[in-house]
Design a binder for these strands. Structure first.
Lengths: 240, 240
DNA sequence: TCAAAAGTGTTCTTATTACACCCATGG
DNA sequence: CCATGGGTGTAATAAGAACACTTTTGA
């Protein structure tokens, strides 16, 4: 084998960290591997990239095959390319994360998806390959990004209450329990959160309320994307 | 050719955006291509990744071959993998940026390096491949990172003045001229900058002053890395 | 004595934090 | 009428922004 040929004895894949939110915990969609290597282990959904396929397209394809969803939030995080990360050969993988409304994911279209399941990110067990490391990277990216851009709404239904929104931020931003308990990992202050999020003027008050709750029903809001885009064009920068 | 084989008709490379600072402008080290494709064009230094080489190692190798430097700041940014990004085949590239002290780069050890040259990032011309896009991504990453972590010091000599440090931040953070002139792209306020940077207590006053300047000589400072690492362990987070 | 850059404080404005009670609804 | 979460304001503190003159040195 020539040296040049040896450079091409390699492949690349995409792996997708699909986040969802169930009202309480931040979740990640994992599949249970049906074949070696790591048969039976939980893993991130991923696939080899087709020879004539862009990386982003491959990530979209993996997402759609598993969830049936298109056009959702998807962002590349970084490449993972340790020599020994794949036991069968040199495979570098490009990590993506996507945000979906957990209620939109109902059936499991793809054949391999019968073994797909939501896992709370704080309770994820040992995964195949270097997927724990990939998940960690994507989670850190999400934590940073959710405070700088209004992507949190991608995880909520179109109509939501302020308390639901606050719980989402808490689920994403509050680490389970800091090593030393140094920084007080308490929840966000309700009044301050509402003040700040409403002061952006990006939430449209729908003049509707929750139904079927055994307490005072909360008002429903909707994220005003077009307003956000207009503000961004004027130099606005989201920060929460 | 089997389908599986076709997946392996691809290669990956690393491309390295090497930043430097000459006291005035933020610079990037580019090489002039000596061979097709894009012969004669300026490009980012890069190379194919060896089959048994980690991505980070490949990026370090490219950097060392060009500059002779080891152990400098290096960070992966992301992968670029458009199908047609390389005219000769499917090559995805992993972009890195590194920060070097421009005075440490003197001779040009590698054979291909006779055509290496510093270019002001604000005046970079059309580059080979998708390297302009890669440079933009790395520059955005640098702009974000330099405010969150004390990596700016990687671009300065060990002893520096506060004015030099301020000029560095201005060179990195101030865009040449905003589209509409909307946000006032003026320099940083000198007094506020000094107050803030000194309040971190991360600069060690060396009790030395500049020599050979035709005006009042400035005091010299040194970045106290061990103090920074100690503070980080206690939960501190740099922010400028 | 001039030019050139170093160095230095205060005021104003804005953002962040801390904090506790009444309200509306369904069971 | 009780349990449950919804909804609201103010005061104190901290951070950021604006701003101009004196000092030191070499030429």
């Amino acid at each position: 084998m020539s040296e040049v040929e040896s450079f091409f004895k390699s492949a690349f894949s995409v792996d997708n960290v699909i986040f969802g939110f169930d009202g309480g915990d931040l979740k990640v969609l994992l599949i249970q591997r049906g074949a070696a290597p790591y048969k039976g282990k939980w893993a991130l959904p991923g696939d080899l990239v087709y020879p004539n396929e862009d990386l982003d397209t491959a990530a979209e394809r993996v997402l759609e095959q598993l969830t049936g969803l298109r056009g959702v939030y998807l962002e590349q995080v970084k490449a993972f390319g340790a020599v020994d990360r794949h036991p069968l050969g040199r495979v570098i993988t490009i990590a993506y994360f996507s945000l979906i409304k957990i209620s939109d994911y109902t059936v499991t279209p793809a054949s391999f998806a019968q073994s797909a399941k939501w896992h709370a990110v704080n309770k994820v067990v040992e995964l195949a390959f270097d997927h724990n490391e990939i998940l960690d990277s994507c989670l850190r990216r999400l934590r940073r990004k959710v405070r700088m851009t209004p992507i949190g709404f991608e995880l909520l239904p179109p109509k939501f209450t302020l308390t639901e929104l606050q719980h989402l931020y808490e689920a994403i931003l509050i680490q389970p329990k800091d090593k030393k308990g140094k920084n007080g990992n308490k929840g966000i202050d309700k009044r301050n959160f509402r003040k700040k999020i409403l002061s952006t003027n990006l939430l449209h008050d729908l003049n509707e309320v929750q139904e079927g709750v055994a307490h005072r029903p909360a008002k429903l809001y909707q994220f005003d994307r077009s307003k956000y885009e207009q503000l961004v064009a004027e130099g606005y920068s989201f920060d929460i």
